[in-house]
Computed example of a mutant assay.
Amino acid sequence: MKIGIDKLHFATSHLYVDMAELATARQAEPDKYLIGIGQSKMAVIPPSQDVVTLAANAAAPMLTATDIAAIDLLVVGTESGIDNSKASAIYVAKLLGLSQRVRTIEMKEACYAATAGVQLAQDHVRVHPDKKALVIGSDVARYGLNTPGEPTQGGGAVAMLISADPKVLVLGTESSLLSEDVMDFWRPLYHTEALVDGKYSSNIYIDYFQDVFKNYLQTTQTSPDTLTALVFHLPYTKIGLKALRSVLPLVDAEKQAQWLAHFEHARQLNRQVGNLYTGSLYLSLLSQLLTDPQLQPGNRLGLFSYGSGAEGEFYTGVIQPDYQTGLDHGLPQRLARRRRVSVAEYEALFSHQLQWRADDQSVSYADDPHRFVLTGQKNEQRQYLDQQV
């Protein structure tokens, strides 16, 4: 039985800050951001959006009534949770109008959690082939203003419908995993921004990739030449390029050139958004499938998922004949229509998120064009609105 990704859709803010402008404001050379980390624009998440609304906005446009009737599992992977007890998936299920008979859970392991959701969903659909699972990686990446991690912020959500006989990508049943207690990145409960040892984390990322990639090749007896392209978790796009370069000696010069060319397409959309944490790998997959004219049905893609702390996994998927019909074709145009904000506007929006306190709060959402918005907090409960109702 073939199980995999049937549909793939993305949502982010309607706002962005230009990375060259941010670099100048931080008294850094623009090329440090544009080339050094490989980012051109960074999504600015307004107070009217959080992981719940981003997740719902990512999933809603791709779901048909038939999909909604078949979904009996919803997994939201996030490290930007809004509650220490209640799963964000429950809020998302309500906004999407899913059945009350749906299993709704939230998963956490830094940027890896959405992949854990995909693997769980695969197994679920394999047992229940008439059902579908909705997996969403949704996050708001925050390191703080004027911090070393600031240029690797961003936010958004990638929604994936997992089904039998998928339109987009049939996922392999074998993978290679590595998990170990590593303090490269963490966020204690009393912090609203993550703590990170940037250089150490980058080294761990590449070490993990080399380990799971080579282990996968060995244990599955796979030749690297059979992989059309390698798709990476991209908290910033330069890190994926470094990881790719580290395994180029495993293939000949022609294959090296092909992998490098494919990677430029895989990072095209990530360059315009920034860090999605759990969704970063799958935005890169969407970018690969949307923008790479050299891809063909039957091509096999390698996917590397990584979550600091740390956990890594490498697995593969095969592109299906009708893969274009399951993709978010409006995404490039939506990104092009976003409004550019000044550094001062970005800083104000960053500092005026819903506060972690008990009193009632309201959020301005008049300028937010998205269907689902956060309007504030009342009686210690977040308030969500469907603007189409």
Rank of each mutant, 00 (worst) to 15 (best):
83 D>I: 09
49 Q>A: 14
75 V>I: 07
98 L>H: 07
108 K>L: 09
119 Q>I: 14
78 T>S: 14
82 I>Y: 00
88 S>R: 01
55 A>P: 06
65 A>M: 04
67 D>P: 08
73 L>M: 05
55 A>M: 02
74 L>R: 10
58 A>S: 08
77 G>E: 13
105 I>R: 15
54 L>T: 13
68 I>G: 03
83 D>L: 13
83 D>E: 10
101 R>D: 09
107 M>D: 06
113 A>E: 03
123 D>G: 09
52 V>L: 06
94 K>N: 12
79 E>Y: 02
93 A>T: 08
109 E>M: 14
64 T>V: 05
106 E>Y: 01
106 E>V: 13
122 Q>G: 05
102 V>K: 10
46 P>F: 05
110 A>F: 02
117 G>A: 11
46 P>Q: 12
83 D>P: 06
90 I>D: 07
94 K>R: 11
76 V>I: 13
77 G>W: 00
72 D>Y: 05
120 L>Q: 14
49 Q>T: 04
57 N>Q: 09
96 L>T: 10
67 D>Q: 05
70 A>M: 07
95 L>S: 12
80 S>F: 01
100 Q>E: 01
105 I>Q: 14
94 K>T: 09
118 V>L: 02
121 A>C: 08
62 M>H: 04
66 T>M: 13
111 C>L: 07
101 R>N: 13
119 Q>C: 10
101 R>C: 15
88 S>H: 03
117 G>W: 01
76 V>S: 05
63 L>K: 06
121 A>L: 01
89 A>E: 09
71 I>N: 11
122 Q>P: 02
104 T>C: 15
45 I>V: 15
46 P>A: 08
45 I>Q: 15
51 V>S: 15
51 V>D: 05
112 Y>V: 04
76 V>M: 07
87 A>S: 14
67 D>F: 09
114 A>T: 12
65 A>K: 02
70 A>G: 08
107 M>C: 05
100 Q>H: 01
102 V>T: 13
61 P>Q: 01
114 A>R: 09
